[in-house]
Design a protein around this nucleic acid. Sequence first.
DNA 1: AAATAGCATAGTAAGTTACTATATATTACA
DNA 2: TGTAATATATAGTAACTTACTATGCTATTT
Lengths: 136, 136
Amino acid sequence: MAVSTKTEYALRALLELTGDGGGSLSAQAICARQNLPKKYVEHLLGAMKNAGIIESSQGSKGGYTLSRPSHKITLYDVMRAVDDSNHEMECGKSGPYCRGESCRLGGLFDEIATRQRRLLNSYTLAEIGKIYHGAT
Amino acid sequence: MAVSTKTEYALRALLELTGDGGGSLSAQAICARQNLPKKYVEHLLGAMKNAGIIESSQGSKGGYTLSRPSHKITLYDVMRAVDDSNHEMECGKSGPYCRGESCRLGGLFDEIATRQRRLLNSYTLAEIGKIYHGAT
DNA sequence: AAATAGCATAGTAAGTTACTATATATTACA
DNA sequence: TGTAATATATAGTAACTTACTATGCTATTT
């Protein structure tokens, strides 16, 4: 229901990658600028890399870059990458306490999930950046 | 992001209370009809009672009733009662890793929470009952 | 070679989830 | 009055999640 710490940290990290020409920044630099716990955020960066949101280069002078323009990265993309949320919750599949055929809540839950996804997809990194940096 | 088991159980319990004249049903009866774990659902019923969604009478022949008509009980009411979700997540209040004044994500998160609340409030128990019982 | 990075694995304390167990309080009914 | 049937309160538990930290390895630049 509420936005998780993971999502907040991930967004703040991405916002550092969004500015200007979008140069490569190290986890070190990102976390220094945003005052974030480095080791923890490295995991989030890893998850976002796996999700295809960012790219990385190793070695000295390595770092992270957005893998596509910020208006093509949505809040949903970030949350999905960083909160695991692979539990798609189909009624009756998840436990012993469902009456199977007569439990007809699955469709409802799917509908709600779809609408939430749509909500979350309606915010792009670019827009969040504007909010963050105070566009009136 | 997904609907929790708590919410599912709570809804299914409430749906039993919704039918017909909305007579009083014991936890026992509710759980027998819905094949739900009694002791666990009793907690959910307690939470919903505290939230003012249902009322209870004690003693033999005791049980639970809706405390207002089913079209005035929303999915949000149920979720709020049963998932704790008292973390209203204001950016910067929750931990050491926020730069305070320059962290401007709080407004965004509030906006999203508001929209999610609106989504969840748009489903009433009455409507969910129709879906559940298969109104075409 | 050395410094600087990413990356992988795992550990940890606190909290949540999905339960169960036990004991107590309240009421209906015989 | 007694007892069965209920709600209610507290607490315990195993598995999992969250928000971290620690250690070590690999890749790249200088």
